[in-house]
Amino acid sequence: MSLAEETSATSMALKNRNLLLGGALTLVFLGAALISFLWVPYDVTQMDIANKIKGPSAAHWLGTDHYGRDILAMIMVGARTSIAVAVVAVGIGMLVGVPLGLWAAARRGSLLDEVIMRGNDLVFAFPSLVIAVMITAAFGPSATNAIIAIGIFNIPVFARITRSGALTLWSRDFILAARVAGKGAARISFEHILPNVLNLLIVQGTIQFSLGILAEAGLSYVGLGAQPPTPSWGRMLADSQTFISFAPHMALFPGLAILLTVLGLNLMGDGLRDIFDPKLRRGRT
């Protein structure tokens, strides 16, 4: 990127409302998760049965749950669980999916390409939550198994997007130049292709991150995610169900946390796409 391009990207980022709003929402939850390492209003494993199911007050800003635990503290620590699961799951998807995609693109049209991509289709064809349920049922419910389950389903997503991005690059002149210079397929893939599909991966990564948070909440909701006492937004929702008619705050706040985080990440993903996608950029300027 030249200097001029960089400035235009920065100024575009500042002008892009989606990105700003999305980024702000994401920062709030990332911040909450980070702050929770240093400070939480109450210990989330400490129960206070005498103060259970209290609405928002000065002492408990978002009220207390059915064990008298502070909901704000639970949401802060729960953010940690959600973010950790989503980050690692996206990480697994990228670490496995991107090399697969690069490899398939490097050997485009070969049997290997077919095998890799049809294998991806196979994984893609299963409803992801059903497989996640199967994995956790077989190996026991835990945050680790939830991460693995969600991670596996990120693999084909990243493999596909990498391959399609790489395919168009392989026919470009600078790649040809690199081949003439005697670089092998692997080296070209990592030195020239990868940096040029990175923007695609960042955008997709943001979207997958938000899906990861949703999937974690979904698995925890059915009891297959992080196990108590580790707070999790999905389990907070599940626990609050029978109280909803007289203590709606118990469902409202974790629900809002999930909604706003996912919304923020999606907006940010849209914003990033606006900036990174050259076609859109040309259309705008």
């Binding site: 494993t45 400490q46 196990q227 108590p228």
Partner: peptide
């Protein structure tokens, strides 16, 4: 399930760490 969560918290307070499995 609920009694277990409460009991686990009570046991942790004295140094026993139950890992809950539903």
């Amino acid at each position: 399930r609920r009694g277990g969560e409460i009991l686990a918290a009570q046991l942790r307070a004295v140094g026993i760490e139950p890992e809950i499995e539903n």
